[in-house]
Structures are given as structure tokens and as C-alpha cells.
């Protein structure tokens, strides 16, 4: 029995999404969000939407992560709540 490729990607996406909102360190949350974007990119490519996958990889995982880190430099790294 082989596990379908899209099921594995789906499990990784859900793990990354839950980890990104529960982790205490904001820099780690940004990095996990970047990993989430890459798994979403793999999912789009598996579904045949190569153009959407390209946009997800370049915009969300590339520039989006950089903008979050630039915003993090203006605040504290640890959450207060």
C-alpha cells in the first residue's frame, strides 16, 4: 500500500499551520510560516496549477517572510501573552 503524495503534503501543511500559531518565539513563527508556504507551493504544483505555485513560492515564501522579519526588527521577539 502506498500513501498518496497529496495526503502527505496535506498533513505537513496542517502541522506547519498549527505550529505557526502555537509557537512562542515570533521569529520561529515566521520561519514556520515560510515552510507552510513551501508546502502549499508543492500542493499547488501537485494539483497542476504551476503558475499559482510559482507565485506562492516567490511572493509568500520569498518576499513575505522578508517583510515579516523586517517588521519583527521593530518589535520584541518574544510574545507577552
Amino acid at each position: 500500500m502506498t500513501i498518496p503524495f497529496d495526503l502527505i503534503i496535506q498533513i505537513f501543511v496542517i502541522i506547519c499551520a498549527i505550529a505557526a500559531i502555537t509557537v512562542r518565539d515570533l521569529l520561529s513563527a515566521v520561519m514556520i510560516l515560510g515552510a507552510y508556504s513551501f508546502f502549499m507551493c508543492l500542493m499547488w504544483a501537485q494539483m497542476g496549477a504551476v503558475d499559482v505555485a510559482f507565485t506562492e513560492a516567490s511572493v509568500s515564501a520569498g518576499i513575505g517572510t522578508i517583510l515579516f522579519i523586517a517588521a519583527l526588527m521593530k518589535t520584541t521577539r518574544r510574545t507577552k501573552d
Binding site: 504551476v50 505555485a53 520569498g62 518576499i63 522578508i66
Partner: peptide, 24 residues
């Protein structure tokens, strides 16, 4: 990516983002 955008995946937006990322 910009030059081959009209007949392969990619295009002006994605190429522009990658070009901006190199500046960043």
C-alpha cells in the same frame, strides 16, 4: 522569468518579485 512569461509559468509579477528580492 519575465521574458518567458507569455508561454510558460511565470510572468511580470513573479519575475518582478524575484528582482525585488535580489535588491532586498
Amino acid at each position: 522569468v519575465i521574458m518567458h512569461g507569455h508561454y510558460s509559468p511565470g510572468g511580470g509579477f513573479q519575475g518582478g518579485v524575484i528582482l525585488g528580492a535580489s535588491m532586498v
